[in-house]
Nucleic acid binder design. Structure first.
Length: 414
RNA sequence: GUGGAUGUAGCUCAGUUGGUUAGAGCACCAGGUUGUGGCCCUGGGGGUCGGGGGUUCAAGUCCCCUCAUUCACCCCA
């Protein structure tokens, strides 16, 4: 196929068995969120670029991983790279600060980032996420994390191990940041090229480095810099999660890439994804809504979950093939079969039927590939008694019955 | 953005030291007599060998470029 007609890099066509599976996952996600009190919020898939720019100037995903365009009216627009900023914008714009607090929202849909594609890294991927606005309490962090865990379990994954950390607040983080910088500057010559530049751009991300791990391991731990409030918040959060039956582990090197986080950050990986690709991740971002012209103090906490990644670690056992019914005709009764097929569809049955006027033999061959019940219309039984033959392809059993008995019979089958 | 691997039918792949009209399996379609599938047999459709350029009498095969896929890094779901 001509290259210019192929699908864009890093995107995918989702075909039949997988597409219905994705739909299933979407339903599970939204149902679970509903059970926790979260309302579905649908925002546009593009926003004015400023929405994302304000929210994370130093992150790669807004710096050079954006799909940005100018529309004919001259407005600068960006395909959303993540959900959090868009939800925050909607929260502010719709005056949700005036609703009963806390406000619980979830979202589901495609996200776009112009990254170099890789295993489980796409330029368009589907994300499910939830955001809780209006509470600074650790119960809020806990609820969001529990929802994320409950969601992946409802989808059929084993209980996840949550990696957790707190990156402090405006009171304590500056001091930590300073000592981290001091520490790394004293080892500057030993650092890899990436870390040297991180030193300038985003010092916290130094802890993410997989090369200079020996230097990293001796770096100061933020835990020792937490202010009293942050320490208490973290301790209460852990206690709540553990009391709820979740296993958590503190990861002192967990600092997430979006730079709007405050205090809590968390992530869960999956063994088969090699610890690098997280299934879901999130944290608290108390200053985000304010950045988007929201009220002075609008605490919030949330997570995002990569649906393609979930799908990839799910076993295929839940793939139950649909029960379908094939209406076949004996040559000469094409129209009668066609009308019967339409009638059965209106009765709610999933029907396949031949549209090529093929021989009965060819129809049965076709039916055996896509159906498990065949209804044969035509011939003497049809002409004389309006009877049809119903054949179970798997059992290789068939019986003849008046057409008016068909609907009750099929209903009793399923 | 950096580095490695790979690009032949819808899919999985053969294709010998460059040498006639490029193959197989699976899938798809049709037949194997009159109204019945899965097995078997026969036949058929489908490829500008990713694209462009070069070397050569001759390129799927050698060289260069490019595009794409894939893996790792970066970052992230």
């Amino acid at each position: 196929m001509r290259q210019e007609l192929q699908r864009p890099r890093g995107t995918q066509d989702i075909l039949a068995p997988i597409s219905s599976r994705m739909e299933q996952l979407r339903r599970i996600a939204i149902d679970t969120a509903t059970r926790y009190g979260y309302d579905l919020l649908e925002t546009p898939i593009f926003e004015q670029s400023a929405v994302f720019l304000r929210v994370g100037e130093s992150t790669d995903i807004v710096q050079h991983e954006r799909y940005t365009f100018t529309d004919v009216g001259g407005v600068d627009l960006t395909l959303r790279p993540e959900g959090t900023a868009a939800v925050a914008r909607a929260y502010v714009e719709n005056g949700m600060a005036n609703k009963p607090q806390p406000v619980r929202l979830c979202y589901y849909g495609p996200m776009f980032r112009r990254e170099k594609p890789e295993a489980l890294r796409y330029r368009q991927h589907t994300q499910f996420g939830a955001e809780l606005y209006g509470s600074t309490q650790p119960e809020a962090d806990a609820e969001v994390i529990l929802l994320a865990c409950a969601t992946v379990e409802a989808m059929g994954l084993p209980a996840p191990l949550v990696r957790l950390n707190s990156i402090g607040c405006s009171v304590c983080r500056p001091q930590y940041r300073a000592s981290l910088l001091e520490y790394y500057h004293s080892h500057e010559e030993e650092l890899c090229a990436d870390c040297q530049s991180r030193l300038e751009t985003n010092p916290l991300r130094l802890l993410d480095c997989k090369v200079d791990i020996d230097i990293r391991d001796r770096a100061p731990d933020i835990k020792d810099y937490w202010c009293a409030d942050c320490a208490a918040h973290y301790a209460e959060l852990v206690a709540l999660l553990e009391a709820s039956g979740r296993t958590v582990v503190r990861d002192p090197f967990l600092v997430r890439g979006l730079d709007y986080y405050t205090r809590t950050v968390f992530e869960i990986a999956h063994p088969s994804l090699g610890n690098r690709a997280a299934l879901f991740g999130g944290g608290r971002y108390d200053g985000l809504a304010t950045t988007l012209d929201g009220p002075e103090t609008t605490p919030a906490v949330g997570f995002g979950m990569g649906m393609e990644r979930i799908l990839s670690v799910l076993e295929d056992k839940n793939l139950t093939p649909e029960r379908r019914i094939y209406v076949a005709h004996i040559p000469g009764s094409e129209a009668d079969a066609f009308v019967l097929a339409e009638h059965l569809r209106q009765e709610g049955f999933p029907i396949d039927t031949d549209l090529l006027r093929r021989s009965l033999k060819a129809q049965l061959r076709d039916a055996s590939k896509r159906s498990n019940i065949v209804i044969i219309v035509g011939g003497d039984e049809w002409a004389q008694f309006k009877q049809v033959t119903v054949k179970d392809l798997a059992q290789n059993e068939q019986r003849t019955m008046p057409v008016e008995d068909l609907v009750p019979y099929l209903q009793q089958l399923s």
